[in-house]
Simulated scan of single mutants.
Amino acid sequence: MEQQLPLFARELAPADQQAVREALTLLEGQLREPGTSFTSSHAVRDWLRLQLAALEREALSVLWLDNQHRLLAHDTLFLGTINSITVHPREVVKSGLKNNAAAAVLAHNHPSGEAEPSQADRLITERLKQALDLVDIRLLDHLVVGGMDIVSFAERGWL
């Protein structure tokens, strides 16, 4: 199956598109390896940078994981504007149940290039954690991508 290109890569020359497609395929393969700890993997961050860093609008993606924290699926659930996004916890829960997920990692981008989470980011993360807890899906992390920088809520002790 051909790797879906992130939006930014669709404007590249065909050879460059192929290079991005191959990089995404390799990184996603690493994420699906048995025994790979999803939340500590550098491949996760590299994969998210390729998926989100160059977007011109905010996007919220969820990485759905099984009981061993291996990647089941990834969904981009919401697209926003250059500086905001509306997130509906109900839709996140529906997607988690559809994917039969045991755990999740949230990720979204800041098109400004500044990875520092806002107060709104912290509030929606708490709401999503509460909603997912109700259906026994553990929220492992929320990663904010700003250019090449990524801030982890878990590493900051916010989850």
Rank of each mutant, 00 (worst) to 15 (best):
P111I: 02
L5I: 08
A13K: 13
R49K: 15
K98D: 09
A107C: 06
R127G: 03
T81W: 09
V92Q: 02
K98T: 07
H110C: 00
N99C: 00
R10M: 12
R45F: 08
L12V: 11
E155R: 14
H110D: 03
D149S: 13
A131H: 04
Q130S: 09
R45H: 13
A23Y: 01
L26T: 14
R21Y: 04
N83W: 08
R21F: 09
Q3I: 14
G157P: 08
A103I: 02
G35S: 12
L63D: 00
K98R: 15
L106R: 01
A13T: 03
T81Y: 05
R45M: 10
E126I: 10
E2G: 15
E126M: 11
Q119E: 11
Q4G: 05
I150L: 08
R156K: 15
E155V: 02
I85V: 11
L123D: 13
A104M: 03
H108S: 04
E2C: 11
L71R: 01
S40W: 13
L128W: 01
E2R: 14
D66I: 06
L26H: 03
K129T: 13
A104C: 05
W158P: 00
M148F: 12
L52Q: 05
A59P: 00
A131C: 10
R49D: 07
E22K: 12
Q17Y: 08
T86P: 01
S40F: 12
T86R: 14
G146P: 01
G29L: 07
A53L: 06
D75G: 04
L5N: 04
A15W: 10
H142M: 13
L123I: 13
L12F: 13
L27W: 01
D16W: 04
P111A: 03
D46T: 09
D66S: 05
V92E: 03
N99Y: 00
V20T: 05
L139I: 04
R127L: 11
G29C: 06
M148K: 11
E114G: 00
L132S: 00
F8I: 08
H42D: 15
D149K: 08
V135H: 06
A101G: 00
V105C: 06
L106M: 12
A101T: 03
L143R: 04
E28K: 10
A73Q: 08
M148Q: 12
G147H: 06
Q30E: 15
V92C: 07
F78N: 07
S37Q: 13
S84G: 14
S61R: 09
E2K: 14
S95Y: 01
V87A: 02
A154H: 09
A19I: 13
L65S: 02
S37F: 13
W64T: 03
